[in-house]
Amino acid sequence: MSDTPLFQVENLHAGIEGEEILKGVDLTINRGEIHALMGPNGSGKSTLAYIVAGHPNYEVFEGRVLYKGENVLEMGADERAQLGMFLAFQYPTTIPGVSMANFLRLAVNSVRGEDDGEGGKKRIAPREFRRMLREKMQMLNIDESFATRYLNEGFSGGEKKRAEILQMAMLEPEFAIMDETVSGLDIDALRTVSEGVNKLYDGTMAMLLITHYQRLLNHIKPHYVHVMLEGRIVQSGGPELAEELEAKGYEQIRSELTPAG
């Protein structure tokens, strides 16, 4: 069991509306590892995130996505989350009328609740839920009024990103993908969000940080860095690869990889 990687992508070909965007992606992530997936806009990073999370609009043409050795591609998005996977969205959806607190309570119950032996889930005690929510909100420097607001409605860019990390903190996933979680944030917000993420990283969970910019990696240190270009992971390495990218830019990497003549 311990030999099975936590998360594996094998030869994944996938896309949207018949168009192939991912053209054979392979990626293995073990427990406790932080990986960064870097690449220019349109290289397929977010597509990978959506496919792993189970967005219904995307289609898989070939390959597998394994979580704890199980192929998740046949599962609904809810089942994947219940298994311990989490995606922090680049553009979180606004849902009018649904309060943050009600939504989080239902989500926590769906993901963390133990089986009650009758096919349902044991509910988290309301007091325990409130205590937990308060604690996590303090940790992420989130105002208490957040809980009564509607999901992402009228949230600033920074608030939306913080709300994503709050959800992650509440759901305590074993594997989290963070899609451009700090892009567009000012330095204070970036610091709060990345500090929050660092606090959530307990050494056993695994993370995949998707980012266009090197900036995030100054705050959250990855163990591995991968570069994605045109639907393939073209280079993998240690943290030094990120710095190399910062110095060279994606264009140089691209030309280095393209055989001359």
Partner: peptide, 9 residues
């Protein structure tokens, strides 16, 4: 989808 991605059926 957003709600389901949080484990909600």
């Amino acid at each position: 989808f957003y709600l389901m991605s949080r484990g909600i059926t």
